[in-house]
């Protein structure tokens, strides 16, 4: 179904403060990129903490990492990369004015995002049951844990493994929060797309939501090896 009839003309989409479409496009894309810069700084604070503590306590980080499930992590990585693909396809459809396909790919992105969060929830739950959540109930004895007892290089005190898990929950938690915000954003955009708000002339919000989604994906691409794989380098 052609959407140009619904998707407004140039003038309608041009906001009053801009002189022309070009200025509007330049401004909004620059704004989006700057926003992503602030996001980099935001996660940067936690990555700094991670680097410092891992350097100070490599064994504890290895122990904590061994206790994570690589299967879940790898599965979620694939899911997120897949969602980046569906997102890219959604942007493409928006540019081509294909309304139904756009809605479809957006829903696909939402589903993959929800899958990721579902797996994350299962993982968090297992951590809770295993007393691997920091706090009064935390308990991690590297000499007794199934995952670490045969790894002499991953023997560390319970307290320093707790630090690893503090960072694990802070970093993946903030990442998950960004995913939830992303899914919320996608839901609104799906609704708007369904109503035909976007078309060949006006698809910037889809494009920027895509940038955001890819950014959140990228953060995970860093989190996965840093959190899940550090303990396993010599098993390959």
């Amino acid at each position: 179904m052609p959407t140009s009839e619904i998707a407004g003309s140039h003038d309608l989409a041009l906001r009053h403060q801009f002189v022309n479409q070009e200025q509007q496009r330049d401004a909004s894309s620059m704004g989006m990129w700057l926003f992503l810069v602030t996001e980099v700084m935001f996660f940067g604070g936690m990555f700094t903490a991670y680097l410092i503590y891992r350097h100070a306590n490599p064994a504890a980080f290895m122990a904590g990492s061994l206790a994570l499930s690589v299967e879940y992590g790898a599965f979620n990585t694939v899911v997120l990369i897949g969602s980046s693909l569906t997102m890219a396809l959604a942007v493409r459809c928006a540019q081509l004015g294909q309304r139904k396909a756009l809605v479809g790919w957006l829903i696909g992105t939402i589903l993959l995002g929800a899958t990721f969060l579902g797996v994350k929830a299962v993982e968090y739950h297992e951590k809770w049951e295993n007393h691997h959540v920091p706090g009064p109930t935390f308990n991690f004895d590297t000499a007794k844990e199934e995952s670490t007892k045969d790894h002499p290089e991953a023997q560390a005190s319970s307290k320093s493994v707790e630090m690893y898990f503090s960072l694990y929950f802070a970093m993946t938690g903030m990442h998950a929060l960004h995913m939830i915000i992303g899914i919320g954003l996608m839901s609104v955009l799906t609704w708007m797309s369904w109503r035909g708000t976007f078309g060949r002339d006006y698809f910037a919000p889809i494009e920027y939501a895509g940038l955001y989604w890819h950014f959140v994906d990228l953060v995970w691409i860093y989190l996965f090896p840093l959190l899940y794989l550090i303990g396993r380098r010599h098993t390959f």
């Binding site: 306590n57 064994a59 023997q155 560390a156 005190s157 319970s158 307290k159 320093s160």
Partner: peptide
């Protein structure tokens, strides 16, 4: 935190 830095040639057996 005896396990943080183990002296070469020893086992990490010291309790905290």
């Amino acid at each position: 935190n005896p396990q943080a830095k183990i002296v070469s040639g020893f086992q990490p057996i010291m309790p905290t």
